[in-house]
């Protein structure tokens, strides 16, 4: 465990808890894509199949349970909670995410570390996480503006490219120091482990992580601009 990874896990945890708290406290989920949340729940369920077969550490097991539990709680809230579900933008959240699931599964059948049940599902979860944000980005584009917390939620999930830029630009107001990006730490962690561990090669996770970053980069650019100009975020249609 290195500081990059720990910070990445904490940022990821905060982003999920912030979203869950926002939905639960305000009893509204407008601007949030249920499809993206369902994809994230699928990512965690398929990635942590080794939850009961491989014990790595208490930290590892607890975090897996928290990630699975909190994302399922978000999906439950948005689908079944009688008050929250009314504010779900069903007519805007129309991304056909089944294609993402099918595509990632097909890719995982071809590209994996080892052709076993667990490894194919692990690779599937890595690919799916890279594209899971797409329904949310499409929903943001359709709903036009970003309500404050949704934007911040995606911001917390964000990546090196613009988080460093935003960090540098707002270093003047330390109170606004945003939580670092989650995947940014993981990319730093992979670089760190590549140089410190002989047999460390996680090409599947690395490349998928970089694609994930690219997907976020454009969102961050517009988020940064709106934040800088203090205007509501308008993504180009």
């Amino acid at each position: 465990m290195n500081i990059f990874r720990f910070a990445g896990d904490m940022t990821h945890l905060i982003s999920i808890l912030v979203l869950l708290l926002k939905i639960y406290a305000t009893k509204t989920c407008s601007g949030i894509s249920l499809k993206t949340q369902e994809l994230y729940a699928l990512v965690f369920v398929t990635r942590y199949l080794d939850l009961f077969t491989d014990f790595i550490s208490v930290y590892n097991t607890v975090m897996k349970l928290v990630f699975i539990g909190s994302t399922l709680a978000i999906v439950w809230c948005m689908r079944l909670h009688r008050v929250v579900r009314r504010s779900y933008n069903r007519e805007l959240d129309t991304f056909r995410h089944y294609f993402l699931v099918a595509g990632c599964f097909a890719l995982a059948l071809v590209l994996h570390e080892k052709f076993t049940f667990q490894e194919v599902f692990w690779a599937f979860s890595i690919y799916l996480e890279a594209v899971a944000i797409l329904p949310q980005l499409v929903l943001l584009q359709r709903s036009g503006n970003v309500d404050n917390l949704t934007g911040q939620y995606i911001f917390f999930l964000g990546y090196l490219t613009f988080s460093v830029l935003i960090l540098l630009s707002c270093s003047s107001q330390p109170t606004e120091m945003p939580f670092w990006a989650y995947r940014a730490f993981y990319i730093l962690n992979w670089i760190y482990r590549y140089f410190t561990e002989q047999h460390f090669s996680r090409w599947i996770a690395c490349i998928s992580g970089l694609i994930q970053t690219a997907l976020y980069a454009d969102f961050f650019y517009y988020y940064f601009l709106s934040w800088k100009n203090n205007a509501t975020l308008k993504l180009p249609a």
């Binding site: 790595i56 990630f67 667990q118």
Partner: peptide, 10 residues
Amino acid sequence: SSNGISHDEL
């Protein structure tokens, strides 16, 4: 792990 590869990262 069971199938030889252990993913220690979350």
